[in-house]
Design a protein around this nucleic acid. Structure first.
Lengths: 189, 189
DNA sequence: CATTTTTCATTGCTACTAACAACTATATTT
DNA sequence: AAATATAGTTGTTAGTAGCAATGAAAAATG
């Protein structure tokens, strides 16, 4: 199973640009490890994301909303009543998709659209009391599950995990939203 | 396997940002910092997953396959030619969904269904040469991007991140697949 | 050995996700 | 006042996803 990497890296390995990317950091160790680190991180993240998506589908759907709907609800609760645009930015979704997600929440009675007096084109989406309640319940369940998951990690490990994941998320947010789309620079073969 | 992990971080983890978020104190029957850690982890993971999903949608779609299709292709390449059931297990998807994902890959020429001689009900799904090639290209791009992302992390941080994420993924895999669905025990207050 | 049951995969159905493009209505610029 | 830009919605198309029902082959049962 591990050997499957062969295809990816082994066969044509140093095909990439040699780690020219600002290895400004003195951390020697042969810059070669950046490639390896990136590959391993990529793999680990893939696993993590797939399994969490699965968990979320399974779990959130017990509560009458889908995963995306739940993310949206979360954003509504957290950021008090964003406009549709703000919401779509937060969720990394197109406005049209966001609008429909809001539709579904409204239909189910978890959110409502209220006019924005400052700008009559805009609306604000706010969670209803029922929406807040649902969100709190779901959140509680998910966190409960998270808790069981990390209960047997040492406290320092737990905290380090969170810190690093948060850092990675921050970096990813900054980078991925910035070079939006266009960056498909590599066009090889 | 839990025990094996235990020391993973013992050896090389400690000093990143020593910003310890307060009192990692007494574990009064489930209270205390475990709650906080779980909450923070939950939050950080949510951010990470959303931003990566966004990245993946943006990025993979340049290459004529969707995110799920790409995951499937990855599984095909990695684990040489699984049966449909194996594939659906790997992807945490229903067999019907998996079958349709395979359809799309077959239609695009990236995979083919071959009969399994051992069991004539079953099939094996194998990537075509074109499929392998596409996968390698996509993988290369994604890893390249990952590389840019973590290039300015210290090597130890990079490695710790990967290690912890992998560990979390492993734990999640084990737990979430095990208590499949049924565990929705908690019934709010 | 014939019958029941189980298993592997596919198809029908329904609902949701998601982007792009076209559109309406309001704001802002010129 | 007219041109342009922005906020949100709707139309369209493709893909995601699960559940239920089906067909076919294998395994278990009598």
């Amino acid at each position: 199973m591990k050997n499957a990497d062969e295809n990816i890296n082994r066969s044509g390995e140093p095909e990439f640009e040699p780690q020219r990317l600002e290895t400004a950091q003195p951390g020697q160790h042969g810059g070669g490890s950046l490639d390896r680190d990136a590959t391993e991180l990529h793999e680990a993240l893939g696993d993590l994301i797939r399994v969490y998506q699965f968990r979320d589908r399974k779990r959130i759907c017990y509560h009458d909303v889908s995963v995306t709907q739940c993310y949206a609800l979360s954003a509504l609760v957290r950021h008090g009543s964003p406009t549709l645009n703000q919401l779509s930015d937060e969720l990394y979704l197109d406005k049209s998709t966001t609008s429909r997600v809001v539709d579904s929440l409204v239909k189910k009675g978890y959110a409502s659209r209220v006019p924005e007096p400052e700008d009559r084109r805009a609306i604000r989406v706010e969670p209803t009391a029922k929406g807040r309640e649902l969100f709190a319940t779901i959140e509680k369940h998910l966190i409960e599950q998270e808790k069981r998951l990390i209960a047997d990690f040492d406290p320092e490990v737990r905290q380090a995990t969170t810190r690093l994941i948060a850092r990675l998320a921050r970096a990813a947010k900054e980078r991925f939203s910035r070079d939006d789309g266009t960056c498909c620079t590599i066009e090889d073969e």
